[in-house]
Design a protein around this nucleic acid. Structure first.
Length: 98
DNA sequence: AGGGTGACCCGCT
DNA sequence: CAGCGGGCCACCC
């Protein structure tokens, strides 16, 4: 599995939508990649990759909870509603690759 | 080279 | 419904 694929996929997330680590992992062929996905995003974390659009499967933002509220605001600006770290209408904004 | 960690997910208790 | 354990992969000592 190449982390490059993770970035490519992440970049393809439409504005106003989000996806989960699990979705990306599944799109790459194996759900078990989920941890590696998070690791890859964490490592690179550059602007070209909208990692703020990648959240956990339960609808929480995951890695941003503490400190990076700005990213949550970005999501808000993109039309995603968030209530105390949780995404509202999660199923509606969730982007699937398959 | 090998073990520990993580922005995780699933299934069983 | 909450908690625990196992498993997946990449990265960093």
């Amino acid at each position: 599995m190449e982390s490059k694929q993770v970035y490519e996929l992440t970049k393809k997330i439409p504005k106003g939508r989000v996806t989960t680590y699990g979705e990306i992992a599944r799109a790459l062929g194996n759900l078990g990649y989920s941890r590696a996905v998070g690791n890859a995003l964490k490592k690179n974390d550059n602007k070209a990759v909208p990692c703020h659009r990648v959240v956990r499967s339960d609808g929480t933002v995951g890695g941003f909870r503490n400190g990076a509220k700005k990213k949550i605001e970005i999501l808000r600006k993109e039309g995603i509603q968030i209530k105390s770290g949780k995404i509202l209408n999660f199923n509606r904004v969730l982007h699937k690759f398959h």
